[in-house]
Design a protein around this nucleic acid. Structure first.
Length: 426
RNA sequence: GGAGAGGUGGCAGAGUGGUCGAAUGUACCUGACUCGAAAUCAGGCGUGGGUUUACGCCCACCGUGGGUUCGAAUCCCACCCUCUCCGCCA
């Protein structure tokens, strides 16, 4: 959430920033709510102070054997008044909390202006799409018909639409990709591998920003604990520091997790219905950093580079795009998307999203570090990025590595994991 | 799943209705002593919020949420978590 002190002191600055997202922050409504909160809190505090003082006098009077009856009567009256005062402050506070939890993060200066993805700014390109002297097939055709390892019909039979079953070489390739990415980040980029729960509590989902606003995007589990299936490993991994106070010398914390992700894709009806691009279940290698505030911008560039390294090793052409104000995620202060070239679509498609959340998630999670300069606990900065989405990487490897006969070339970096140079056409 | 024990400050550990936000120890910080250090002594040392030019003052927080009471760390209820034993299980 946005620093409440900033919100109170400079609501107009906040409103101007959020307007770049197309978000309307109603300053007068906030100001009047904040006003009511202050009045109600002062009154409740005053009554409590009086009640406490009175109760103490009761104790002293009884100790001295004096008649406490008048004090008791006064106490009863104060208690009654307190009930009303507390109801008032609780009501206002709940409204204020709901409002604040619904505010998206402030954008960094450098975020491009714009209302939708057409305004996203291409930062750089890497690699050149292969020229193919045949019409490239898309991954569905390659996987389903030629390699016979990608079975959407089976996925639908087992679960429903937007599920897939992988077999044979395709399943092994999928596994190889995840292993390769984990090894790259742990061995060369300094991340610690973590294994985490795939169900998360509402508190964790509030921490990273999926709740309360985006419940419709999640799969909720029917149980007494109100679990949700994680939409990304960002949720469990980032929440590892929830309610923690970290010592300065433990930062930065760099963690990587390979996990399944579950998304309801509410509102995506009709979008990417073909193939593995948009599924209810997919796996992803997620990289997360917890850093001191002044380090987060540099960490963001570094982390994006770590995600890019995956695509470079896999010899997949891609571009880096800075998301504009209108397209950037709720919790993010700045996001780079990595878009990989897909010959089957003749388009660059998102395969990774690398974001700097600033202190936004940290405030929601109460994740702090002890700043040596002040000696005080202060919010950390959190970042994460896909490094990268395994299902989409599979799609990219198939489509970019395809030959005229439908066989697939396996990139060199993947061969030790996959165990062969090619998937033969059948 | 059954039975039991327990959740208090960085850690350990008192506190079972009344100046308790919480004894004491330890860790940490500052000062004294010392050439320096250790030891010793003195002081300081939680988080969030409100208010104040400031010193300060006030409120909340003893796993979480309710309740009883003039007053709750302390009593009652529900839930969460941890530990021990039994059963079951990958």
């Amino acid at each position: 959430m946005i620093d409440p002190k900033l919100l109170r002191a400079s609501p107009d600055v906040v409103a101007a920033n959020l307007a770049r997202r197309g978000f309307n922050f109603d300053v007068p409504a906030f100001a009047s709510l904040e006003d009511r909160r202050k009045t109600a809190q002062i009154e409740a505090d005053r009554l409590r102070a009086e009640r406490n003082a009175n109760a103490k006098q009761v104790g002293m009077a009884k100790g001295k054997g004096e008649d406490a009856a008048p004090l008791l009567a006064r106490g009863e009256l104060l208690a009654q008044q307190l009930v009303e005062a507390e109801a008032a402050i609780n009501g206002v506070q709940a409204e204020l909390d709901a409002l604040q939890m619904g505010l998206p993060n402030l954008l960094q200066e450098s975020v491009p202006q714009g209302t939708d993805e057409s305004a996203n700014l291409e930062i750089r390109r890497w690699g050149t799409p292969r020229t193919m002297d045949f019409t490239p097939r898309d991954h569905v055709e390659l996987g389903e018909r030629l390699a016979r390892g990608m079975d959407f019909e089976a996925g639908a039979r087992v679960a429903g639409s937007r599920f897939v079953v992988l077999r044979h070489d395709i399943a092994r390739l999928h596994r190889a990709l995840g292993q390769f990415m984990l090894d790259l980040h742990t061995r060369e980029h300094g991340y610690t591998e973590v294994y985490v729960p795939y169900l998360a509590s509402p508190a964790s989902l509030r921490g990273t920003g999926q709740l309360p606003k985006f419940e419709a995007d999640l799969f909720a589990v029917r149980s007494e604990q109100n679990y949700y299936l994680i939409p990304t490993a960002e949720v469990p991994v980032t929440n590892l520091v929830r309610d923690q106070i970290l010592e300065a010398d433990t930062l930065p914390l760099k963690m990587v997790a390979h996990s399944p992700c579950f998304r309801s894709e509410a509102g995506a009806a009709g979008k990417d219905t073909r193939g593995m691009i948009r599924q209810h279940q997919f796996t992803k290698v997620e990289i997360v950093q917890i850093v001191a505030p002044e380090k987060s911008q540099a960490a963001h560039e570094e982390l994006t580079g770590h995600a890019e390294a995956v695509l470079q090793r896999l010899e997949l052409p891609y571009r880096v795009v800075a998301l504009c104000g209108g397209d950037i995620g709720f919790s993010s202060s700045k996001t780079y998307d990595l878009e990989v070239w897909l010959p089957g679509q003749q388009k660059y498609r998102e395969i990774s999203s690398c974001s700097n959340f600033g202190d936004f998630q940290a405030r929601r999670m109460q994740a702090r570090w002890r700043n040596p300069a002040t000696g005080k606990p202060e919010p950390v900065h959190t970042l994460n990025g896909s490094g990268v989405a395994v299902g989409r990487a599979l799609v990219a490897v198939l489509e970019n590595g395809q030959n005229a006969d439908g066989s697939i070339n396996i990139p060199g970096a993947l061969r030790p994991y996959f165990g062969a140079e090619k998937i033969a056409a059948r």
